[in-house]
Amino acid sequence: MAGAADPRPGDPLFAPEHRDAAFDWLCGLGDGALILGHRLSEWCGKAPALEEDIALANVALDLIGHAEMWLALAGEVEGQGRSADDLAYLRDALRFRNPLLVELPNRDMAVTTMRQFLFDAWHLPMLHALSESASPRLAEIAAKARKEVAYHLERSQDLVIRLGDGTEESHARMQTALERLWPYAGELCQPAPGDAALVEAGLVPDMAAVSATWQEILDETLREATLERPEGRADVQNGGRKGRHSEHLGFLLAEMQFLQRAYPGAEW
């Protein structure tokens, strides 16, 4: 109801002037976690070793758990009564706000591992900064998620180093994966136009600072992995925050949303 009292007194996240931008920003974070978690879950039973099956499922579970928290909060901020499930299962691609990187197909374990590393190396400093947010709700979820993401980064960074500096073949595959993903990687650190007011209010981190840490982690890890940082721009492929996605997202959503779309209103 327009003009209703602030539902969360004292938490600036719920201030009416931030509503649209905060909803959009939270969807960006929640959708990123959801779509990447979904992609990782596609590996189930098919990983190169049992330990990897278990680890990939772990990371997928963490991310889907984060998505649930972010999307639930997005729904609260929006104030239209939409739940995390409503947002996950009943929006079409135009309304999804995830970066394109996470919706790209898994291909081989080199692409999956490199994508995970590029994401984790952004995710951790972002959550770290977000845990200092002026919004207690944002800070609380970020602090919780950060502990899990620290483990994600440790694992993906370690794998990038080991596979990069492994055999000739594993090195070549990792380098190819990096080059393939590079044009998508920079979108992680690109703010959307609406974010400026949120940054100014101290609600969400300034991406320039997050980007600096991200670049440092990348450089250090790639050096140790004996991989070469591609020369081209890292931000040519983007559009997720505007709902402009790759061809892949539509198929992913068709699969993910099938039951909710085929049997509207049923409980599961």
Partner: peptide, 11 residues
């Protein structure tokens, strides 16, 4: 998964 397992062993 062979290249992946081999890569880790080689490292």
């Amino acid at each position: 998964g062979a290249w992946f397992r081999d890569g880790l062993s080689a490292y």
